[in-house]
Nucleic acid binder design. Structure first.
Lengths: 334, 334
DNA sequence: GCCGCTTTCTGCAACGATGTATCCAGATGT
DNA sequence: ACATCTGGATACATCGTTGCAGAAAGCGGC
């Protein structure tokens, strides 16, 4: 059927292993031999069988990416960038959607999916550190995001606290005093919601503004859920002059609901988000948000993971990378 | 290292091949034997090595998905759905971004990527049918989208012409007479742009409204490009009372630019899109658009591809599936 | 008791590459 | 002149499965 190394070897008049050596850039090969092999490869249109290579070598040059839902715009943009970065280093990315279900996160961690990949970019939303540590296996794993903060793991994350604090400070500086937060529960202190909420509280403290639990609305991080959250706020008649959506999708859903209800943005209520997805720039009004250095996150996490796979990163402890951030001040909260 | 079939066989006291038979649901196995094997598998926590299986059997249970850019919202949503549908049938999806470059489309077609997958969901933007036909290889391939319309290929597409016609008719019914189209060139007649433009022209004809090339603005199908296109229209002072963006991203970018320039939507200019991405519902004003039956497209294309792979679909000619559509009339063009 | 058929299970080869050991020729050292 | 070393190539085993052929056991029919 397909052309194999054997065919190439025969045509080039060398042994099978020599062909293999040429392909793997083995040092000691006479240029003439190498050329013969390359010519034969060319003539036959030979392409290495990755499955066989993978079986024999134990490496697949694939990275696994586990996230809850690829259609969420932040994840879509992140995945796209991760794939580009990985591609530049000769790796592919295999994506698995967990739907934020514990069982799916678990099976991604030690099921067939794990086996197919040389390393994992893992965005857990449900599992706790000890469970992960228990099933981590021997292949490298880089945590993406902040649901799990544990010194044992390599982690690439963003400055959630400081970024949320900066954004809240910006809203306060604009004269807002009753800033609703959508996407966290008042008691959260870990995970992305908790960390961003912490930043919010710090900014309030700094400004001497009291924290009001009624302003904190739990919500899934989706547009529709953001809209529902605003609905709830308005229906409960909790007064507020700003909404800080803990991600952009949420914030955009919230903003939409505000506008529908006749609330003027930003005159009556300012709206801020987090992520700086492309959509934010083109919303109306355009969305003020935090740009969390997505490209940096993509480059560092893929780089770290591949370095681990290839044994270039040897640190015994988990490496912890925190990407920088910038506020993008736009019309929704000038 | 890992547990192999051999370990299971030893523990269960049967031959290696019997273990394999159990795993592959071979018919003639005594229930007692089967149970012994299953127990051994359980006890050892055995998991089949997919790479070895794939090498031996020639099947990977992976589908390839080639698209230009995963961060484009339509593709992100589509990919997410395709993955879910595939997953339900026991397949994974490996995504490759082509960046709409011919060389990438080509290499996806017969490079290592092809080798890793049992079949391809292909969204070409550059290649022509004959090139594809020449390099298609022996594995199944399903065309997604309409850049290539060729009876030789299995194709899953949407009713571009009729949907665009219906949307244009809706705009005309709302009294709009100078409907700008963004995302096609006046001469296009093939591919998604061409087909949608054709639908537009048919609706104009039906209504007895003349076609004006100056209203047709070519553009990439991205938000920023949509914004630039509107900028160009306004700068050229071409009068228009509606904008039909040939996809939602485009339409949303266009709408954003209109609003920035102080043009009222929909009072001064109505805006319509195509795709019904989630974002459209939550835009302000919410975007009138065409819902092209994305779930149906996902189900039919994955179903068809897997049926081909498993030999259940035997038609010699290309199977052609056209998903239904619905207009979603929202505030941007009531 | 022999034949043929089905049921149940086994052994060996093969998929297409890479790792290890080895071999040979020529260069080098003494 | 002989042992040693090194560059350049090869042979063979191996990765963990599945396909194929066939063996052993059970069973009914004559």
């Amino acid at each position: 059927m397909a052309v194999t190394m054997n065919d190439v070897a025969r045509l080039a008049g060398v042994s099978l292993k020599t062909v293999s050596n040429v392909l793997n850039d083995y040092e000691f090969i006479r240029p003439a031999t190498k050329q013969k092999v390359l010519d034969a490869i060319d003539e036959l249109g030979y392409e290495a069988n990755l499955t066989a290579r993978s079986l024999r070598s134990g490496k697949s040059r694939m990275l696994g990416l586990v996230l809850s839902d690829l259609s969420a715009p932040y994840y879509a943009e992140l995945a796209s960038r991760l794939m580009s970065v990985a591609s530049a280093r000769g790796y592919r990315v295999l994506v698995e959607q967990s739907a934020a279900l514990e069982e799916n996160e678990l099976s991604a961690l030690h099921g067939p999916f794990r086996q197919l990949t040389d390393g994992l970019l893992f965005t857990p939303l449900r599992l706790d550190p000890d469970t992960v540590a228990g099933r981590i296996g021997s292949k490298p794993l880089v945590m993406l995001g902040e649901h799990i903060q544990d010194p044992r793991f390599d982690t690439v994350t963003m400055k959630n606290v400081r970024a949320a604090q900066a954004m809240t400070a910006h809203l306060l500086a604009g004269g807002r005093r009753r800033i609703a937060v959508i996407g966290a529960s008042a008691g959260d202190s870990t995970g992305s919601p908790g960390l961003r909420l912490t930043g919010y509280r710090r900014a309030l403290d700094e400004a001497g503004v009291g924290f009001e639990p009624a302003l904190i609305v739990p919500s899934e991080w989706r547009r529709d859920a953001g809209a529902s959250a605003v609905e709830a706020l308005l229906d409960r008649a909790v007064p507020f002059d700003a909404v800080f959506g803990l991600n952009d999708a949420l914030a955009l859903g919230a903003m939409h609901e505000l506008l529908i209800r006749g609330v003027k943005v930003p005159q009556d209520v300012a709206v801020a988000g987090f992520d700086d997805i492309d959509e934010a720039r083109f919303a109306s009004p355009s969305l003020t948000t935090v740009a969390p250095g997505m490209q940096e996150i993509a480059e560092r996490s893929v780089g770290l993971l591949i370095d681990r796979i290839e044994g270039k990163e040897k640190s015994d402890d988990g490496v912890h990378v925190e990407a920088g951030f910038e506020l993008r001040i736009r019309s929704s909260a000038p």
